[in-house]
Amino acid sequence: MSYATLAGLFLLAAVVVAVVLRVAARRSLTPLALITTIVVLAALTAVFDSVMIAASFFHYDPSQLLGITIGLAPIEDFAYPLAGAILLPALWGLLTSRGHRTELTGPDGSGESR
């Protein structure tokens, strides 16, 4: 199985779970928040994966890669932060929509801590 196939399956699973969670939470995701998160995570992935590859912490079998890189990071590496950017806000939306949010209150119950 190539890295692209593995990354694609992982991303597909994350998207399916995110859609199910969003429907269950009955909440939508702000497109600007999603895009901003994806851009930041992609930049961090490009920098830190390139550093780790340059330091020889890990390597890839070139025959299993598509050959497209950003810095030293193969394009397949970007599926995982993309999946996180899609999946985690959906999970957060589900958890906060069902009353799992905790309120911080002060000693007198006023909502102000002392």
Rank of each mutant, 00 (worst) to 15 (best):
A42P: 02
V51C: 09
P74T: 01
M52N: 15
T37L: 08
D77P: 05
A54P: 05
G67A: 04
A46W: 12
F58A: 12
F58K: 08
L41T: 11
L41G: 09
S63Y: 01
L65H: 01
A54Y: 14
P62M: 02
P74S: 08
T37N: 09
P81Q: 11
D49W: 02
H59M: 08
A43N: 04
L66P: 00
G67T: 01
A55L: 15
T37P: 00
F57K: 13
D77T: 03
I75S: 11
Y60E: 04
L65V: 00
I68H: 04
T69G: 02
I75D: 07
A83M: 01
V51Y: 14
A83K: 00
V39D: 06
M52Y: 14
V47F: 14
T45V: 06
F57Y: 15
F57S: 12
I53S: 07
I53W: 12
L82W: 05
Y60G: 02
D61R: 07
L65W: 01
V51S: 10
L65Q: 06
T69S: 11
L82T: 12
I75L: 15
F78W: 07
S50M: 11
L82A: 13
F48A: 07
A73C: 08
L44N: 07
S63C: 01
A79F: 09
L41E: 10
A73T: 05
A43H: 02
F48R: 10
D49L: 03
G67V: 00
D49K: 01
A83H: 02
G84K: 03
I38N: 04
A54K: 14
E76Y: 02
I75C: 08
F57M: 15
A42Y: 10
I38Q: 04
T37I: 02
I38D: 05
M52E: 13
T37C: 08
L41W: 10
A42F: 14
L66V: 02
T45L: 02
T45D: 14
L72W: 11
A46R: 06
V47P: 04
A73S: 14
E76D: 10
G67N: 05
I70A: 11
F58I: 08
I38G: 03
F58Q: 08
G84M: 06
P74D: 09
Y60L: 04
Y80W: 15
A79G: 08
I68E: 05
P62G: 02
I75M: 13
A42L: 06
M52K: 15
D49N: 12
